[in-house]
């Protein structure tokens, strides 16, 4: 492989990785936008989404097959289920805390994360679950670059979801309400906007996106684990901060930037792949120090 091929490969890998980061980061940033909460349970919803997608696919694969079509249906159902789970979590755990000090709700989020992780741990006995699907390893060769169909489908699916979200936020009534709540929730209430409902919708969409990422990651990588949401949760948080937390285009951009930074950073001579996480969290610290608002974040009042 020439240096150019390595670069091309890592750009592709970064794109795939960045798509996952971006999907999870979107939920982080949307939820932060409406209730100013860093939802640390968000990575675990990605894990739950993976498991539900797997259960659905196992149930329907005899009818629709285990290819991308089956995974697509499993992903939709998983998004629906985890979306509702997100709404339920918000209602039970976060809603009563909304007027409490910020630290209380943050600690609640950590507790929710522990509950989700340990429930999965208890149900799976801490074992890795194989995500069986019929995805082949085929692909096309572009020069020295080998792109699998799976990678193409994955990046395309992530792009479609993000475009749909962008459309929802900028062109629908709920999207407008969501942006308005992000700017000033109290004012929205005074103007007759059902803020609680807007928060519910935000949790639904954010959680559903995490579930979509979880199902696709499970199918793409082939295994599920109760702890798989932890690291990606942190990475998505990093991505959201890089893009400017609270900003939806920022989360998309931040996810892709982080994916690419990681992929390329590990190929710098002297920095092995074991430094990957150090690399991304060092970037997080640098962003927090030098540009706390992130790439696309604006002033404190104008989130989202």
């Amino acid at each position: 492989m020439s240096l150019l091929d390595i670069l091309a490969h890592q750009l592709l890998n970064g794109l795939v990785l960045g798509s996952f980061y971006a999907l999870v980061a979107l939920g982080y940033t949307m939820i932060f936008g409406v209730i100013k909460l860093l939802n640390f349970a968000h990575g675990d919803l990605y894990m739950v989404g993976g498991f539900i997608g797997f259960i659905v696919l196992s149930a329907i694969s005899s009818v629709v097959g285990g290819g991308w079509f089956g995974i697509f249906i499993a992903m939709l159902l998983s998004m629906l289920a985890v979306g509702f789970l997100g709404v339920v979590i918000e209602r039970i755990a976060y809603h009563p805390m909304l007027s409490a000090p910020r630290l209380s709700i943050l600690i609640t989020a950590l507790a929710v994360s522990l509950v989700l992780q340990n429930t999965a741990l208890a149900l799976t006995n801490g074992q890795y679950t194989a995500f069986r699907s019929d995805l082949g390893f085929g692909g096309i060769t572009l020069g020295g670059l080998f792109i699998t169909y799976n990678q193409m489908v994955l990046v395309a699916a992530a792009a479609v979801l993000m475009i749909a979200l962008e459309f929802f936020v900028t062109h629908t009534q709920y999207g407008r309400a969501m942006r308005a709540v992000a700017v000033d929730a109290d004012m929205c209430e005074l103007l007759g906007i059902n803020v609680a409902a807007v928060i519910g919708v935000t949790f639904f969409i954010g959680s559903a996106l995490a579930a979509a990422a979880g199902t696709m990651a499970g199918a793409y990588y082939g295994s599920l684990w109760y702890f798989m949401g932890f690291l990606i949760g942190l990475k998505a948080f990093t991505a959201a901060v890089i893009g400017g937390i609270g900003s939806i285009p920022g989360a998309m951009l931040g996810g892709l930037v982080l994916g690419l930074l990681e992929a390329l950073g590990t190929q710098i001579p002297g920095i092995g792949s074991e430094w990957k996480d150090v690399f991304s969290f060092a970037v997080l610290i640098l962003v927090l120090v030098f540009k706390p608002t992130g790439l696309l974040g604006r002033s404190e009042q104008e989130r989202m």
């Binding site: 890998n13 795939v16 990785l17 990651a217 990588y221 684990w225 798989m228 590990t266 190929q267």
Partner: peptide, 8 residues
């Protein structure tokens, strides 16, 4: 515990 080994 990492899922993505593309760098390696």
């Amino acid at each position: 515990g990492e899922q993505d080994y593309s760098a390696i």
